[in-house]
C-alpha cells in the first residue's frame, strides 16, 4: 500500500512541479523554473521507481508507464543540454507539453495509476525492455526537438542561425536513430511472439509514417532551398504525428498493440 501512495504522490507531485516549471519559464523566471523542473524530474524518477517496485519489473507495459518514461526522457535531454547554449524559453514549451501528457493520464488513464496488471504472455520478453526504452528515447527527443522548433517559429523574424539548425538536426537524428532501433527490435520481437515481423498493425504503420517524416526531414535539411522555418514546421508536424502514433492509435485504431 505504501508503494501505491508513493507512486500516486510522486506522479501528482511531478505533475504540479512540471506545470509550475512551464508557467515559470513562460514568465521568464528561469532560476525558479529550473528549480521546479529539477524537483519534477526527481519526483518523476521516484514515480517510475515506485511503479517498478510494485510491478517487480521495469514499468513498460501500459500508456501510463510509457508516459512516465517519455516525460523523463524529454526532461533529461532538456536538463542535459541546458548548459550548452540552451535557450531557457524552450523550457516553457517543453514543460507545457510534459504537463499536458500528465494531464492526459489524469483525465483519461487514471485507473492505470493505481492498478498494476501482470504482464500478458506476449509481453514477457527481454525484447520488450529494449524496444520500449528505444521508443521512449525517440519520443523524448522528438518532444524536445518540437519545443526547440516551436520557440524558433515564434521568433521567425530573427535571421537564420546555423548553430540552431545544427542543434535541431542533431536532436532529431538522435530520435530518428532511437526510433529505427525501436522499430527494428520490435520487428524481431514480433517475429518471436506472433510469427510475423511486420503485419501493418496500426501502431507499426504509424511508427513507419513517423520514421518516414523524420527521414524526409534529415534528407531535406541539407538542401539550400530548405529554410529554417520549413525545418521547424516539419519538426512540429513530425511531433504531431508522434502524438497520434501514441494516443490516436491507442484510442482510435485498436490492434496488436492495444495494451500499450
Amino acid at each position: 500500500m505504501a508503494l501505491v501512495f508513493a507512486n500516486l504522490g510522486a506522479f501528482y507531485g511531478a505533475f504540479l512541479l512540471y506545470a509550475g516549471a512551464a508557467a515559470a519559464f513562460l514568465l521568464r523566471r528561469s532560476a525558479g523554473a529550473l528549480l521546479l523542473a529539477r524537483g519534477g524530474f526527481i519526483l518523476n524518477i521516484a514515480a517510475v521507481a515506485a511503479r517498478a517496485a510494485r510491478a517487480g519489473a521495469l514499468p513498460l507495459a501500459n500508456s501510463y508507464e510509457f508516459i512516465l518514461l517519455f516525460a523523463l526522457a524529454a526532461v533529461f535531454l532538456f536538463l542535459l543540454l541546458l548548459g550548452r547554449g540552451q535557450d531557457p524559453a524552450v523550457g516553457g514549451v517543453l514543460f507545457s507539453l510534459v504537463a499536458l501528457l500528465f494531464l492526459v493520464v489524469f483525465l483519461f488513464l487514471r485507473p492505470q495509476i493505481t492498478a498494476v496488471q501482470p504482464l500478458p504472455p506476449a509481453l514477457r520478453s527481454l525484447w520488450l525492455i529494449a524496444h520500449v526504452l528505444a521508443a521512449v528515447l525517440a519520443y523524448g527527443s522528438f518532444l524536445f526537438a518540437a519545443a526547440l522548433a516551436a520557440i524558433r517559429l515564434r521568433r521567425s523574424a530573427e535571421k537564420e542561425d546555423a548553430a540552431f539548425a545544427r542543434r535541431l538536426y542533431h536532436i532529431v537524428f538522435l530520435g530518428f536513430a532511437a526510433l529505427s532501433v525501436s522499430i527494428g527490435l520490435g520487428a524481431v520481437w514480433a517475429e518471436q511472439a506472433w510469427g510475423s515481423y511486420w503485419t501493418w498493425d496500426p501502431k507499426e504503420t504509424w511508427a513507419l509514417v513517423t520514421w518516414i517524416i523524420y527521414a524526409l526531414y534529415l534528407h531535406l535539411s541539407r538542401r539550400r532551398a530548405w529554410t529554417e522555418r520549413t525545418a521547424c514546421l516539419a519538426v512540429c508536424i513530425g511531433f504531431i504525428v508522434v502524438l497520434f502514433t501514441f494516443f490516436g492509435v491507442n484510442f482510435l485504431l485498436p490492434g496488436l498493440h492495444s495494451y500499450a
Binding site: 501493418w200 504503420t205 504509424w206 509514417v209 492509435v249
Partner: peptide
C-alpha cells in the same frame, strides 16, 4: 512521402 501518406490513410 507517398508511402507515408497512403499507409496513414490505409489504417
Amino acid at each position: 512521402a507517398m508511402i507515408a501518406a497512403m499507409a496513414a490513410m490505409g489504417t
